[in-house]
Computed example of a mutant assay.
Amino acid sequence: MQTTTELAGRAAALAARGSRRILGIAGPPGAGKSTLAALLAEALGPETAVVVPMDGFHLARAELDRVGLTDRKGAPDTFDAAGYVALLRRLRGSDGVAADAAEAVDAGTVGAGTVYAPAFDRSLEEPIAGSIPVTPGVPLVITEGNYLLHDAGEWASVRALLDEAWYLAPDEELRVRRLVDRHVRHGKDPARARAWVARSDEPNARLVAAGRHRADLVVDLG
């Protein structure tokens, strides 16, 4: 079991290694990934760390409707995985090779300047382009999402772009309660929320868990 202070120290050490690094936090839906990423960024400060969520690459509702995937929202094929990979490569400012494997590459140089990443607005349930500025001097990007350790399709490219990957393993009963509560807050009635979790979120959670062994650290916050 780790404390948030210990994890912040580990993230700070990664940020201090001399060129831009990317820390990935993976885990199943409702694990608390975005909460942990925000805590780390707050502890390190805006000049050191910025959070870039994978959820910014959700396909828009109109596109999900067009391709018939609305009822599967949250599954791997309901994201623009190739777009996410392209952004990680741009944030590295290199050809995408992890800095540990290519110290000769100046991964701290980010193209021509600030890179703008998309966010995901849960009140709208839509991605919002150009929402998160990542300035060239920021040494640590914290990215979080379900499929950072997934090894199928475009997702398979993500792991090599992360200097360090953590897998957040929460108490399962608490995780499911969080998911139901989240869906209720965003408009579903409790019965529909529980049905969505069972039909959609939990199959995705099992898929995410299959990548746990690819993490550098399994995080248990108790």
Results as ranks from 00 to 15, higher is better:
S34A: 11
A8I: 09
T35D: 12
S200R: 09
A119L: 13
T114Q: 05
G211Q: 02
T109Q: 15
A195D: 13
A205F: 00
R21E: 03
L88V: 02
R90Q: 13
T3Y: 13
A169C: 10
A205K: 00
V97L: 11
V115G: 03
A102L: 03
L39N: 13
A62V: 08
A129H: 14
L87R: 01
V138Y: 10
T70K: 08
W155R: 09
D189E: 13
G45A: 03
W155E: 08
R17C: 13
G56F: 05
R159T: 09
L221H: 04
I128D: 09
A156Y: 00
G18M: 15
E172G: 08
G18V: 11
G96H: 02
I132L: 03
H183W: 04
E103V: 14
H186E: 14
L217T: 12
E164L: 00
V218K: 10
H183L: 09
S19H: 14
G93L: 06
V141Y: 02
A86N: 08
A198R: 15
G222C: 07
H183N: 13
E47L: 09
R185F: 06
A102E: 08
T109L: 15
D151G: 14
K73F: 07
E125Y: 12
L7S: 02
R185M: 10
G56C: 04
Y167R: 06
G32H: 06
E144W: 05
A193P: 05
V197S: 01
G27Y: 00
P29R: 01
E125H: 15
E47V: 06
R182V: 11
G145R: 03
A12P: 08
V138W: 06
E42G: 05
E63P: 04
G93F: 08
